Simulated scan of single mutants.
Amino acid sequence: MPILRSSPPSPFGRKVKIAAAVLGLSDRITVEMTDTKDPHDTIRQQNPLGKIPALVLDDGRVLFDSSVIVDYLDHLAGGGKIIPAGPARHDALRLQALADGIMDAALLQVYETRFRPEDKRHPEWLAYQADKVARGLASLEADLPAPVTPDATPNVGQIAVACMLGYLDLRFDGAWRASHPKLVDWLAAFETAVPAFDTTRPPAA
């Protein structure tokens, strides 16, 4: 059985877990806790970058990063499920890229404050990453992703946006909500339509 190396707070790992759930594949994957800070954790051999998520296949091959893994899961489920075919494909992939980019910028802010002593932090760098998040959220507020309904399978872009917003709730106390009411409503609808969003919710920091 494939092994998903991840940790509960990872928004990218959450994206993979939600994808597996909506594709009906959760029971075909074992999730294994991973500590990327531990030099003895085997993640550094499984993924030379030492990053999560990584999916260890039965034949020993390892897939990373999350966009590759969700593509593999979609293929495993028959294709065209969370990565649409035809013209909608690149719209979904573009939305995923935007959400992933916002997550990357948010993670870099967290790492700057977590791993650097306060006197060595770089305010301009933090502001640079925060501006990426702000621009990305403004773009999504102005051009909302299509709503997710209980009778439809969300695409990778919608899943990524939900995980990104969930990560901002986790690490930035939901500060995004005050200025983005349409996204707040969009996420509430996603949570109602996709039970896996709740079951993959990370513990409070």
Rank of each mutant, 00 (worst) to 15 (best):
E141I: 10
L93M: 14
G136L: 09
E191N: 11
T153D: 03
L98V: 15
I83A: 05
I83K: 10
P11Q: 05
S67W: 03
G78M: 10
P195S: 04
A54R: 03
M1G: 12
D185M: 14
L183V: 12
Q158P: 10
P123A: 00
R5L: 09
Q96G: 01
A134M: 13
G86P: 10
R44A: 07
L187Y: 11
R44W: 12
T149L: 15
R61E: 11
S10L: 06
P154I: 08
R135N: 12
K51N: 04
A189E: 14
L57S: 07
I3W: 04
F64S: 06
A97L: 11
S6G: 00
Q158I: 10
D27Y: 09
T192L: 13
V110A: 01
K17W: 08
Y111Q: 13
P39F: 06
I82Y: 03
A205S: 10
I18Q: 02
A196M: 10
K17E: 15
Y111A: 10
Y72V: 12
L23S: 08
A85H: 15
A130C: 11
A189L: 14
L76G: 01
C163M: 09
P53T: 04
P147Y: 06
I69R: 07
P145Y: 09
S139N: 13
N47Q: 06
K132I: 05
G166T: 01
R44T: 02
D59P: 02
A88R: 15
D59T: 07
M103G: 01
V161Y: 10
K17T: 12
D74T: 10
Y167M: 00
L95R: 15
D59G: 04
I29C: 08
K120T: 13
P11Y: 00
G174E: 04
A97K: 09
G166V: 00
L55C: 04
K51C: 02
D173E: 15
A77K: 13
A189W: 06
P154A: 07
V110F: 12
P181D: 09
K37V: 00
A175G: 09
R94N: 05
L187R: 12
K15Y: 01
V62G: 00
I69N: 00
A21F: 05
A178M: 11
P181K: 15
S179V: 02
E32I: 00
G166M: 03
G50S: 04
V16F: 00
F197H: 12
G136V: 06
D38W: 03
R5N: 04
I82G: 02
L137A: 05
R94S: 07
A19L: 06
A204K: 12
A193S: 14
A134E: 15
D100F: 00
K132E: 00
P145E: 09
V31M: 10
C163N: 12
Y167V: 00
A175K: 13
G50L: 05
T153I: 15
V156M: 05
Y128Q: 15
A205D: 11
C163K: 11
V161N: 02
A162K: 05
L76C: 10
I82D: 03
L144R: 13
G101S: 13
P11V: 02
D104N: 02
P145S: 04
I83S: 04
R201C: 08
D58F: 04
L170R: 13
A88C: 09
L126G: 06
A178G: 09
V156L: 10
K120R: 15
E32T: 05
D41H: 06
R201V: 03
L55T: 03
